[in-house]
Design a protein around this nucleic acid. Sequence first.
DNA 1: AATATTACTTTACGCCCGTAAAATTTTATT
DNA 2: AATAAAATTTTACGGGCGTAAAGTAATATT
Lengths: 343, 343
Amino acid sequence: MSTPRIRNMEEFATVSGISRPTVSKYFNDPESVRQSTRARIEAALEQYNYTPNIYAMNQNRRLTKNIGIVVPYLADPFFAEIARQIETLVINAGYRPILLSSHGDPMLEIGNLDALRAIKPAGVLLAPLGRSSDREALAAFCADVPTINFDANIDGIGEAFVGHNNRQATDIILEYMIRTGEPPSFLEMRTPPNPNANKRRNAYIEAMNRNGLAPEVIQIEGEGWDLEEIGYRGGLGVLKGRSLPTDSILCSNDRLAIGFLAAAYECGFRVGRGRGNALRVAGHDNHPLARFTCPMLTTVSHDYAAIAQTSVNTLLSLVETETRPAKRESTLFDGTLILRDSA
Amino acid sequence: MSTPRIRNMEEFATVSGISRPTVSKYFNDPESVRQSTRARIEAALEQYNYTPNIYAMNQNRRLTKNIGIVVPYLADPFFAEIARQIETLVINAGYRPILLSSHGDPMLEIGNLDALRAIKPAGVLLAPLGRSSDREALAAFCADVPTINFDANIDGIGEAFVGHNNRQATDIILEYMIRTGEPPSFLEMRTPPNPNANKRRNAYIEAMNRNGLAPEVIQIEGEGWDLEEIGYRGGLGVLKGRSLPTDSILCSNDRLAIGFLAAAYECGFRVGRGRGNALRVAGHDNHPLARFTCPMLTTVSHDYAAIAQTSVNTLLSLVETETRPAKRESTLFDGTLILRDSA
DNA sequence: AATATTACTTTACGCCCGTAAAATTTTATT
DNA sequence: AATAAAATTTTACGGGCGTAAAGTAATATT
């Protein structure tokens, strides 16, 4: 009953009654062969369940179907979520995603790129660590492999940048907070790992000035990617020290805000936008868990879907045309205000 | 100045003054060649920066150095964290980890295994979806590839199981809760995706009976892996309906507890173990964000490090000896009580 | 129906490395 | 120093597929 096992493409070509080069052509692009031929191959495929040896395929091919995805910190649900969306798009486009996390470590980031180089990817989607990234090593990699830089912009890295419009996003949440209460202070890390933080701070300062208000930037200490912990400790510091200039806080990102909320809760500050609350707290990113904080976190959402879609489309069009754009373009997607209870 | 590029192992063998087969041997195991030979190869390596073509290497090798890691849902920080630890161990052992997430989808779980099959991994570490997994497809895969089943046990799948001691863990947190207040009800999903939930419920019921107490199991509705949302909605249901049999809740896992805490906050129930609190809530897993809930979540931690270490060691010893154990062993690691403020 | 176009087959070669067997050199043993 | 053991080299082959060139068959064009 069980049909004999097919060992290679030669044997498969024989049983399907098609020549091996044509079968090879089919596997590289099923649409590139005649409809009747395709049908015969696919009939044989159902019967024999053969798959080409991926190593032999990639050995001679100029371009593999591998697409690398590198994120700075996969244990952060924000990156897990965007990686998930990108993965799905890459698979649906007929490519094979290879997801790597740098775990916050610049050495590992380079290690990931080296590992990718070894598998000769057709292209890479790179969300770099940011400040701690080894810029030269990234540039060297991008010179060899078509790369799209997403999430955190590093000038000159990659063929294009796709990310979040930090300025617009900061403007809308700031406008909201100013309109509905005291103008907020801005809470951030003194040395943020991610360059988006700087963009947000600057946008905050400019918008406050534009409104004739005095910007108040609170910078808390801490290194690395354990952002909730840093937000928590920093929050305890300013709350216990009663050093807050206002009753409203705009955090540089949701993870800091989550930590800050924990500190506020512990110190007995009631957070919210209604009466009887001592503090308003807002974040930035629309982290997957921002809906479940106490109170639920008001924030600005990235347009996850658009960022994922555009990054993938841009890369695949480069890959498929085998060109590199003359100029590095930046595409920024506007954020959306997510009104919940914390501010 | 720049040395000519090395195109393949043949050329590299020439410039290093060693024969190609010996160089090949070196790359498969640097210790397998004479010390002096190794030094010459490594000197040449520094000068020429050659890496063997990974596709050509794997084409003829019986076993690759690829280790697959499959988790059910990577956007869950619990799995992200354990995947991170496993990845690190695999790299340090000289293998190449390939991390894949099933994103809660049984079809994708099978798809991931198929993708792994294509790259001929030396072994696989599999945390299955659980209830929704296609058991037969998993078994077929395990017959072909040495696999260790971790986190969620599926009988007969894999050469061994490594996981969390749900019984002991449930016992210790239950003992604590009974000793310090009202015996808790157990909150779970009616149809939990993960089999650990069933173990925990059964352990809860038995322990309650053993103590002469009446077990109270609250089953909330919901499908899939959006556990915070399910916990939140379920929490609203029981809290608004005032249908809680006790003032103490033991949640089946921390993600449900996070959602439940959000519901309790919204309903104005003060949660905690001190006086003046209406409710005690505890979880299970020690989720990375359990430290930052309001109040901080009392829970039982997995021994993440031991589970990761043992899974990897067990798999690599199978891989390296090229044997399969006569009997499928289960190794369970005890949980640790993490006392925080919520219970 | 004759021609042009497209798709396919045949033939042939190359990619880069693993691996086995036999011959040779190097190192260890006594 | 003679022998044994281990490491290396030489030689040779094969793996599974991409791809190019030239010839043949099928489809489209007029």
